[in-house]
Design a protein around this nucleic acid. Structure first.
Lengths: 192, 192
DNA sequence: CGCCCCTTTGACAATTGTCAAGACCTGTGG
DNA sequence: CCACAGGTCTTGACAATTGTCAAAGGGGCG
């Protein structure tokens, strides 16, 4: 686990690993507001005084270079500027989608939502109803809790419930197998 | 209160009033993911399949024109395109800021956060510690609840608590007076 | 082996949701 | 002017969910 400061003068590609972006309350409560999976392009070109903290959730390999390089390319190539700008709306949609998870879902649904999110990121092609999928959770329980707006204990309990209900297999508390992605997706929306 | 469909082929300026953007779960649970205050510029130029519903929260006056007009202006004027693109990151930051409210704050803090948000939008210039501010809440309790991820009853109860604690005055359940914006801001973060 | 961190589980407390009843406010029609 | 109807808001009693505190289990690494 690598700590990362606010290296805001530079830009980086994530070559491998997962970076978490979080916000803090004065008393220490924390909320993860976004995850950057490889090969995402983190960093923002605008809104300078946005207080998010970037931190590695797993081992991360970065390819980093100065902000100025991007700016100069963007200025010269309108096509590049366009592509950079398209990044933000996509993240924006993800954020709004997550808001309903944070505000309206129960703990069990939140957890299912998170697992679905990870599965989808790591197996983009596999459709629901395609047999078991085995993969590694990139976050430990504490980060899980911070992403879902819950406590470690609640997360852990609902992992156990999902396991006992047969929706998932748990090997290592990180190594998960989703038996039926369709069923999990339904559970993430409170259907049955 | 005017119902508004997904008029996605057009763009509109909000001349007055407030528009709420919400997301729905299959079983009817709802989360408001953003508010558009006059004179905001609603609508999105990208990410076509983003399922948010726009609905008027108050009486709203719009000035609307076809999407194509904007696109053509944006294509011709790089400056305009730039300005349009700057809109999204700002909303994005608001969304992320709201995520910590939804995920980590208690009901009382959520409510204080919401009132602060409205005060700030309607009196952009007034700094904290500048005497009482009187204004109208643009949302009814039900919308309030959908914005904060709570129930109507919880919202109502905490309104009462805020009133009894002297932080706010309530005339009409819509006409509010904030006695000390600084104190409310502190309450919105769980300080004291 | 022992230490440290992470995870799980239990008992209990606090917060929020649910259901239900009544108050309030506003516009309409007698 | 008053009564009524409809929606909105408040309040109470109780239930469900989640958080807090505490203890114990498991795995990796020196």
């Amino acid at each position: 686990m690598v700590a990362a400061g606010s290296d805001s003068g530079r830009h980086s590609n994530i070559l491998s690993g997962v970076v978490k972006l979080s916000k803090l309350l004065p008393d220490g409560r924390q909320q993860i507001v976004g995850l950057q999976f490889a090969p995402d392009f983190p960093g923002r070109r605008f809104s300078p005084e946005n207080t998010v903290t970037a931190e590695a959730a797993t081992n991360v390999r970065l390819c980093s270079f100065p902000q100025a390089v991007i700016e100069s390319i963007a200025t010269k190539s309108r096509e590049t500027e366009h592509r950079l700008h398209l990044q933000t709306p996509r993240k924006f949609d993800e954020a709004r989608k997550w808001m309903i998870t944070l505000g309206r879902k129960k703990a069990a649904e939140k957890l299912a939502s998170f697992i679905c999110l990870v599965v989808t990121h790591q197996n983009p092609e596999v459709p629901p109803g395609n047999g078991p999928i085995r993969f590694e959770l990139p976050l430990k329980r504490a980060d899980n809790a911070d992403f879902l707006g819950l406590t470690i204990e609640t997360v852990s309990r609902h992992f156990t419930k999902l396991r006992k209900s047969g929706m998932i297999f748990v090997e290592n508390s990180r190594q998960i197998t989703v038996n039926d992605k369709g069923r999990l997706l339904a559970a993430s929306q409170g259907i049955a």
